[in-house]
Design a protein around this nucleic acid. Structure first.
Lengths: 195, 195
DNA sequence: GTCTATAGGCAGATAGAC
DNA sequence: GTCTATCTGCCTATAGAC
């Protein structure tokens, strides 16, 4: 925006998203409140309502930013990495960075709470997974064409296997094993799909 | 127990677990209340507190029953199925039955909410995954010895891949694709591990 | 074993002053 | 933009009658 005020290091709306994002990734959408955010930002709940009309609106903004950031990261990978396996390794690194903060993937967390989410949030979560699957499918098709990735399943099947494998591993690693466990499992997963 | 009263078809304590289990599997531990259960059973919240002192105690009972039932199912598989691949297919069928009711695995759901759970609940969830991994590791070792399962990774790695793959697929399938998607992904997963 | 009644707290949200 | 003050409703939980 950069419209009205003399641009602080991070305005309240953005810092609200930062705090809320972390809370959702660690505690879940039904596990945090406006009061939690207000306390961390040292403002009142009423002030938060100025920036986001309600929790549902905040939730949508959260997914929108997360998805946009993820899309940028994927574009960045497409620019920097050449072969398919390198792209997949970089893809795994995105998840590793999340888990390093003891966080769950935002959309993985919201997927668990899917039945309790406002409809627009649920739809945005589903789109996130679709977009990731599309990207992974393309990467896998590229890898198969180059002969570097296993041709024992379709690119679409492999994409689902990677996506759900990483989300599931994240989910379980948070209860035990943490980042080391996640990285070992991710390596096994990719190795199983490498020709 | 079967101690005091003339044993009804299902006493309140048991029916409470049935309702609470479904609510947790669909909405999560932080997404249901005593009021929800009371309404379904047509009793008051106060009556529920007679059977389970508080929500944390109910939560522990939930995991205990779920884990015990799961353990019985695994014993049953060990009796009925002969080769390793048949055991894994039967294992997947347990998950399919859960998803058929639009439910998430109880412990998969609780894993997402791990950071908000009372300590005893969190520990019980971690144990559930450990027990499953142990069983799967043994099945995989058996399959490798018989030459029916892929020897390209250790039994322990394969067990983690199956467990997290199924949990992750369940998580995502609930947002889109449902049971058909889960079953297709599970088949891909097992096929990838079959020699 | 189930009830009524109630406590005490926290949730999401709004009105209106500054 | 942020505040104080407040609302309404739901949450978990308890005391005590039946």
């Amino acid at each position: 925006m950069a419209s009205s005020s003399p641009r602080k290091s991070a305005d309240t709306a953005e810092r609200t998203l930062d705090v809320a994002e972390r809370l959702v990734q660690i505690r879940g959408y039904n596990g945090f409140s406006y009061a939690d955010i207000a306390a961390e930002l040292d403002i009142t709940k009423a002030s938060l309502h100025y920036h986001y009309r309600g929790k549902a609106e905040l939730g949508q903004a959260l997914i929108a930013r997360f998805s946009a950031r993820f899309a940028l990261a994927l574009e960045s990978i497409d620019r920097d990495a050449t072969d398919a396996r390198a792209k997949l390794d970089a893809y795994v690194n995105i998840y590793s960075a999340v888990l390093r903060g003891d966080r769950m993937c935002l959309c993985g967390m919201l997927a668990a709470e899917y039945e309790t989410l406002p409809k627009p949030m649920g739809e945005a979560v589903a789109r996130f997974f679709q977009d990731n699957e599309t990207w992974l499918t393309n990467v896998f098709a590229q890898g198969q064409a180059a002969g570097s990735l296993s041709a024992s399943m379709t690119p679409s099947q492999a994409a689902q296997m990677i996506l759900s494998g990483l989300e599931g591993t994240m989910l379980i690693a948070r209860t035990e094993g943490g980042l080391p466990r996640f990285q070992a499992s991710a390596r096994s997963l990719l190795d199983a799909l490498t020709a």
